[in-house]
């Protein structure tokens, strides 16, 4: 039955869009504006989240080993460290490598070539999965024989990490609120366009149209209006963001902007999808109100 009526539905939708251009434009432009707002915010949010992830991942602990420890003993200690909770990744830094690293840093000021003895002990760079758990890890490390000293940015982590985490939560809450508002506004606009045609719905019922038969063209129309609006919005967002990216990468190189096309495409696809869903669902709800179901 639905299949047999599909050509009729498509004709209906095309005719209605053509014969009610004002309503079509009203719905589509509402979607357009809201998707742009939602899109701008989503892009800002993913950038903030990426920024906070990059910053938190730079917090790590350095465990210095006793002098002249053999590689075998060091490997033994590495095994013990990886057994500790919250330890995500360990990197062994030999005393030679540490010397080289410092040499790189200070090559403008001091020449370390002349050193008789390498003063740097070998160490482990320990990356944790949660920077706030550093103290806990430190207690565990303190119990391991062979670790002479421990160095980590305790204060900075304690201050930065909750801040960054709050940014993330704030983004999630704001996006949820924005999405909720978008759904409300779009479904209200669509309700108005359906309200303008409530008499048609009544007539369709009097002629013996089944509910699904009345509903489908409206839903398809809603989806199309959502699609039009969000497609235009996403195109504008894409062009603007890629242009902005090109400029910002040069002017603010320290900020890790999201330039991964996959992430960007996912966001834009999600925006188009939500435009369609909100359009279709808005129509569905509005039509049901006038169908008295």
């Amino acid at each position: 039955m639905v299949l047999r009526s599909l050509p009729f539905f498509f004709r209906e939708v095309a005719l209605n869009l053509k014969r009610n251009p004002v309503m079509t434009i009203a719905s589509a432009s509402t979607v357009l504006v809201l998707v742009i707002v939602l899109g701008v915010f989503s892009i800002v949010a993913v950038n903030l989240v990426k920024f906070s992830r990059v910053v938190s991942s730079q917090f790590h602990m350095t465990a210095f080993l006793s002098e002249n420890m053999s590689l075998g003993d060091a490997m033994q200690i590495q095994k013990q460290i990886s057994g500790l909770p919250h330890v995500a990744r360990i990197r062994y830094v030999s005393s030679e490598e540490a010397l080289k690293r410092v040499g790189e840093w200070l090559k403008e000021e001091i020449n370390l070539e002349g050193l008789v003895k390498n003063p740097f002990p070998s160490s482990f760079d320990i990356y944790v999965d949660d920077p706030t758990a550093m103290d806990e890890v430190a207690i565990g490390l303190g119990k391991i024989q062979g670790i002479k000293d421990l160095n980590y940015a305790r204060k900075e982590a304690a201050r930065m990490v909750p801040f960054l985490r709050n940014i993330k939560y704030a983004c999630i809450v704001l996006i949820a609120l924005l999405l909720f508002t978008t759904v409300l506004i779009v479904s209200n606009t669509i309700k108005l366009t359906v309200f303008a045609r409530r008499r048609e719905i009544e007539i369709m019922q009097l002629v013996g149209a089944a509910h699904w038969f009345i509903r489908w063209p409206f839903i398809l129309e809603g989806v199309l209006q959502g699609l039009f609006g969000s497609a235009v919005a996403v195109t504008l967002l894409y062009i603007t963001y890629t242009n902005l990216l090109a400029t910002l990468v040069n002017s603010v190189p320290w900020f890790p902007l999201v330039s991964n096309p996959l992430t960007l495409h996912q966001i834009l696809a999600a925006l188009v999808a939500s435009g369609c869903i909100v359009g279709g669902a808005g129509s569905f709800i509005a039509v049901n109100r006038f169908l008295r179901v």
Partner: peptide, 27 residues
């Protein structure tokens, strides 16, 4: 068939489409 004082025709449809609607609904 039901007819009314106010005709209850679909305003955005032609005379042909209005008459055809009763057949479209039964597929």
């Amino acid at each position: 068939g039901i007819i009314f004082q106010d005709f209850k025709l679909l305003p955005n449809k032609t005379i042909y489409e209005n008459a055809a609607y009763a057949l479209e609904v039964i597929g």
